[in-house]
């Protein structure tokens, strides 16, 4: 065993990259859940975003346009969920699962002509002297634009929820749709917008996989990342910065277990592979223990259909 081979700066830098897809998807889902909607179809929207982004980036030669297309694709697919749950009042859990099934099939159909192609490369942003700082430079300042975008998005979501009127309305809708409706807010439209935002973010997360982290297109390439994003929203108790911590923690444990293996640590691999999930459960328990739902910060109307009876 040679643990000295693990360079903490490099480890931190790669955990940021590894965490970005789930962070993007999770921050989108946070907004969705804050509006009182539980969309379990994150996986389906991510993979659809992955192929939309990939296809558009390949066709246009521009990764930036690819990301725009991924966001649009994810948002468009999420509207299926939005229309079903908001207008047809279908059960959110079942519709979300159906969305995942549909998204996996649709993406595979769309992607049939894109297997084995290399996408246009996404470069790292040149931050000049910052990148040369010892330790910090390697950890923070040698990444591609999407890593920074995801961090900005977390900040923006945090500010949106905390300081803006629109954020207040969104929270009101999520806490009590009946009260929000009585106050004259358009519950259904607020939720639709939140769902679209969630879809766009999930799409971006998927495209980050297919354009940056892997980069290639293959069926089922998200391999469960969407489910992790869902877990992280709860793990972060619906707070943007905690979601960031959760995503980085999960990405960190994943990267660390591979590094420990590479360093020859004699821990059974199966148990190492379980560790990110077990640690997430453990943290969930610690966070929720001894406190009620209110302390957990869960939107009170989460998962409930809204129908204006008046």
């Amino acid at each position: 065993m040679d643990l000295s081979a693990i360079n903490p700066a490099v480890l931190l830098a790669s955990l940021m990259v590894a965490s970005t897809p789930i962070l993007l998807a999770a921050i989108g889902e946070l907004i969705v859940e804050k509006s009182g909607v539980l969309n379990l179809g994150v996986e389906g929207m991510m993979i659809t975003g992955a192929i939309c982004g990939f296809a558009i980036a390949v066709q246009t030669g521009s990764p930036a346009l690819g990301f725009v297309g991924a966001a649009a694709g994810g948002a468009l697919l999420s509207m299926t969920f939005g229309v079903l749950t908001q207008f047809f009042l279908s059960n959110q859990v079942a519709t979300g699962l159906a969305l995942t099934l549909f998204g996996l099939g649709l993406s595979a159909l769309l992607g049939q002509g894109y297997v084995g192609i290399k996408p246009p490369p996404v470069g790292d942003i040149n931050l000049g002297p910052l990148a040369d700082l010892p330790f910090i430079g390697r950890v923070l300042f040698q990444h591609d634009a999407m890593v920074y975008f995801s961090l900005l998005l977390v900040a923006a979501v945090w500010a949106f929820l905390k300081y803006t009127r629109a954020g207040l309305i969104l929270r009101a809708v999520g806490e009590s749709h009946d009260a929000a409706h009585a106050l004259g807010y358009k519950v259904v439209w607020v939720r639709l917008m939140a769902i679209a935002f969630g879809g766009a973010c999930a799409g971006l997360g998927g495209a980050y996989l297919s354009l940056v982290r892997v980069p290639q297109w293959t069926e089922g390439m998200t391999a469960g990342a969407g489910w992790i994003a869902l877990a992280i929203v709860v793990f972060g108790s619906w707070k943007p910065w905690r979601v960031l911590i959760g995503a980085y923690l999960f990405g960190g444990v994943t990267v660390l277990q591979l590094n420990l293996q590479a360093a020859g640590l004699a821990v059974p691999v199966e148990y190492l592979s379980m560790s990110p999930y077990l640690i997430t459960i453990l943290v969930l328990v610690i966070m929720s223990s001894g406190r009620g739902r209110a302390a957990l910060n869960a939107p009170a109307s989460l998962g409930r259909s809204f129908h204006a009876s008046s």
């Binding site: 079903l84 519709t95 549909f102 099939g105």
Partner: peptide
Amino acid sequence: LPAAAIQAFQGMLLFFLLAVDVLTNY
């Protein structure tokens, strides 16, 4: 037919089943 088309087809079936359910309650 590709397996993916079947998967998408099943997804559609579920969507429609869930959507028309509204008629039962409303």
